[in-house]
Amino acid sequence: MNIFRLAGDMTHLASVLVLLLKIHTIKSCAGVSLKTQELYVIVFATRYLDIFTSFVSIYNSLMKLIFLGSSFSIVWYMRYHKAVHRTYDREQDTFRHWFLMLPCILLALLIHEKFTFFEVMWTFSLYLEAVAILPQLVLLQRTRNIDNLTGQYIFLLGGYRGFYILNWIYRYFTEPHYVHWITWISGLVQTLLYADFFYYYFLSWKNNKKLQLPA
């Protein structure tokens, strides 16, 4: 575990906490894409299939449980909690899951490190995570009305990806045989998707103005 990996995991954890805070305390999910949250459930469910079969550390297992549990509970709140569900921008959040999932399934079947069930599912989760934020970014662009917590949530998620890239660079130079092209390329694609959002986030922060995306 290096400092970049830890910083990445902590920003990821913070992003989930910010979102839960918004949903749990303010009872609002305005501006949050249910499609993206459902895709994250699928990402974690397919990636952590090994949760009971391979043990790395208490830290790893605990974090897996946290990410699985939090993503499930966010989706549950948005779908079934009456007050929260009322604030959901259903008409704007129209991205089709299959439009993202199908190419990821095909790509995972074609490009993977090993052709085993667990490995293909793991690879699928990497590809899907790379694009899972797209419905959220589309929703932001449509509503244009971004509250602070939603902005911080996406900022922290993007930060998590940035730290993971630093972690890979660090590990590449410090550990022998550490080469994972599929993880790196899909991770890089994922981080690049945040570039546009980051640009406007910093702009609004610099000018001390409310975050607004151009139409």
Partner: peptide, 10 residues
């Protein structure tokens, strides 16, 4: 080597 296949990232 087999050890490098351990998935230790989240």
């Amino acid at each position: 080597p087999e050890d490098d296949d351990v998935k230790d990232e989240l």
